[in-house]
């Protein structure tokens, strides 16, 4: 492959941009959970970071159950990754479902003020990650990785592109497309959009609000759980793992326009790359300074985010 001279001489760019994109896809997947719930309930689910953590552990335990201590080789071992992704997604979806039942629905039934939801979410978050730390140990555990995922997938201008980055990007892309289709083309999606626009009218039109909200949580949880597995694959699984990616994804959701699904995707990708690029010139200590500096600047000029707020309404 022909490689432009500029990149060939500064090939660290390739690592930074591709690695940043891989992180960005993870942020995007997680950001969807925030944005979907915000769309239907107008509140931020601060326990979503623990949905990510649950996905990490779900994937970890599933892989341990399937693989034992072996490390499968060969291209088709990539199928084991599918097991992990599905298990992570299911664990995330289940956690989100329970969260909605326990921490949100009772409050909604009593017309609790907004602040109560916030505290309830933070409480659920503390509860979940502390119980995970207590039950699963406080050391980073690593997910067994088939050899096909361990090395580089291919080389780009002399820089290896890691297989797990490719796996993350492909998975995220597929899930994002599926979700986009679900929300825009299916009856459930129509229901979600209807509740997002006007819950009362939607219920008058025959939309089952409770079920729609629960399914919205589950949808977000499936994405977040899958992201948790993919994150754990690269950086290990530990009870505190959800915190930072959760916060970053929330940021990405706001950056793209909270409540806006495509906005969350774009916001995640941008944040991932914004974070990486400064490392070309500065130490990693500046990573968040630059990334969030850019974020604040962007919001100053576009307070509703890149694609604007609101789920269901065209941006």
């Amino acid at each position: 492959m022909h490689c432009p001279a500029f990149i060939a001489h500064n090939n660290i760019w390739v690592s930074l941009v591709v690695g940043g994109l891989a992180n960005g896809f993870l942020y995007a997947l997680i950001a969807l959970g925030y944005t979907l719930v915000y769309g239907v309930l107008r509140l931020i689910n601060f326990a979503h970071s623990e949905v990510v953590m649950a996905g990490g552990f779900g994937g970890l335990f599933a892989m341990r159950a399937v693989l034992g201590t072996s490390t499968p080789a060969g291209f088709w071992a990539i199928g084991f990754m599918l097991v992990g992704i599905v298990a992570g997604a299911l664990a995330g979806g289940a956690t989100a479902f329970v969260l909605e039942r326990v921490a949100y629905r009772p409050l909604r039934k009593r017309n609790a003020p907004r602040l109560t939801y916030l505290i309830s979410a933070i409480g659920a978050s503390f509860f979940l990650y502390n119980i995970a730390g207590k039950e699963f140990g406080r050391y980073t555990a690593f997910i067994q990785t088939p050899t096909v995922i361990q090395g580089n997938a291919f080389s780009l201008c002399g820089v290896g592109v890691q297989s797990d980055w490719i796996l993350t990007m492909v998975t995220a892309l597929v899930l994002l497309l599926v979700l986009d289709t679900v929300v825009n083309r299916t009856k459930l999606g129509k229901g979600i959009r209807a509740v997002a626009q006007d819950a009362e009218t939607a219920s008058l039109m025959g939309v089952h609000i409770d079920r729609t909200i629960a399914l919205t949580f589950v949808l977000g949880g499936l994405m977040g759980g899958a992201a948790g597995f993919l994150f754990g694959l690269q950086f290990g699984v530990i009870y505190t793992m959800g915190f930072v990616p959760g916060l970053k994804a929330f940021t990405a959701a706001v950056l793209g326009g909270i409540g806006n699904i495509r906005g969350a995707m774009i916001g995640g990708l941008l944040l991932g790359v914004f974070e990486s690029i400064p490392l070309r010139w500065m130490s990693a200590e500046w990573q968040d300074v630059v990334a969030f500096g850019v974020l604040v600047m962007l919001l100053l000029f576009r307070p509703t985010g890149i694609l604007g707020e609101r789920l269901g309404r065209e941006a």
Partner: peptide, 16 residues
């Protein structure tokens, strides 16, 4: 307080 997602980028700067 930082994110582990920095490490692939950090590693790239070291290798370069």
């Amino acid at each position: 307080t930082a994110s582990p997602t920095q490490y692939p980028d950090d590693a790239a700067t070291v290798v370069s």
